[in-house]
Amino acid sequence: MADTDSFDRLAFDVFSRECPSRSTLEHVTGRWGGLTLGALYEESLRFNELRRRVDGVSEKMLSQTLHALERDGLVLREAQPVNPPRVDYELTPFGREVAEKLLGLIHCVEGRMDEVLAARSRYDEARGGR
């Protein structure tokens, strides 16, 4: 296990190819990572509840996404000792902070979609009506 004191001395730069923050940023901003964090912001969810909430994600991709987010310390997986087994997923404090910022971006994009659709239409018209 790495010495956490050595991490305190590191300067992280996401623009550097070797920086470990780059993979975390990819997990957070990837299609399924951002949607998963956003879905978990309001409440903890079971796997299938989360899969229904994040419409279009496959079971395999959601599982991979949750593993990556859990490894990065954004999501907490809590297995309940009941029969049948129950597993809940919730955000850690760090995950809540990241999800809050992502939701700000999501709301910004959703609120400006009329402009986006108009820009797309102009772009396509200027290039021969794609």
Rank of each mutant, 00 (worst) to 15 (best):
Y89H: 14
P85A: 09
G30T: 03
G73R: 09
L50P: 10
G129F: 02
H107A: 12
M1S: 15
R9P: 00
R71Q: 14
D3H: 08
V57W: 00
P85E: 06
L76E: 13
P93Q: 07
E42L: 12
R9G: 10
N83M: 14
A126C: 03
D72H: 09
V116K: 06
L10I: 10
G33A: 04
P93E: 14
R71L: 13
D72M: 07
S21T: 14
R86C: 12
E59Y: 11
V14M: 02
Q64H: 14
R51E: 13
T65G: 09
S63D: 15
S16H: 13
D72V: 04
K101Q: 15
K101P: 02
D13M: 04
P93Y: 01
T92Y: 06
S21H: 09
L117G: 01
L62S: 03
T92E: 03
H27F: 14
C19R: 07
V82K: 10
H67P: 05
R127V: 01
R22K: 15
T92N: 03
W32V: 11
E70V: 12
E125P: 00
S58Q: 11
L103D: 01
A79I: 07
Q80T: 13
F12A: 04
T24F: 07
L91R: 06
E26M: 10
N83C: 13
D5L: 13
A99I: 06
Y41I: 07
H67L: 14
R52C: 07
A79D: 14
A99G: 10
A39H: 02
M113K: 11
L74F: 01
F12W: 03
L117D: 13
E78F: 10
L76Y: 01
P81Q: 11
S6C: 01
D72K: 00
D5H: 10
L35H: 08
R31S: 14
A39W: 00
P81C: 02
D124G: 01
D114W: 00
L103G: 05
R17W: 03
L102H: 02
S63Q: 15
V82D: 09
T36G: 05
L76I: 04
L45R: 13
D88I: 08
V82E: 12
R9Y: 00
G34K: 05
P81A: 13
E42D: 15
D114C: 09
G73V: 08
P81K: 10
C19F: 02
L105C: 12
A126Y: 01
H27L: 12
G129I: 03
D13R: 07
E110S: 12
D124M: 07
F94H: 09
G34Q: 10
V116M: 04
Y41T: 09
L10Q: 13
V57Y: 02
P20K: 04
G34F: 02
L76W: 00
G104I: 11
R120M: 07
H107T: 12
A79G: 02
L25Q: 11
R51V: 06
A79T: 08
P93R: 08
M61F: 08
R52S: 12
R31A: 15
L91Q: 05
A39Q: 00
S21Q: 11
T92A: 05
G129W: 01
E97S: 14
Y123F: 11
V87S: 13
P85F: 04
G73N: 05
E100K: 08
L102T: 03
L91A: 09
T4E: 13
V75R: 00
R112M: 03
E78P: 06
L62K: 04
G128N: 03
L10Y: 01
E78N: 14
F15M: 01
R96M: 11
L74R: 01
S6D: 12
R120D: 00
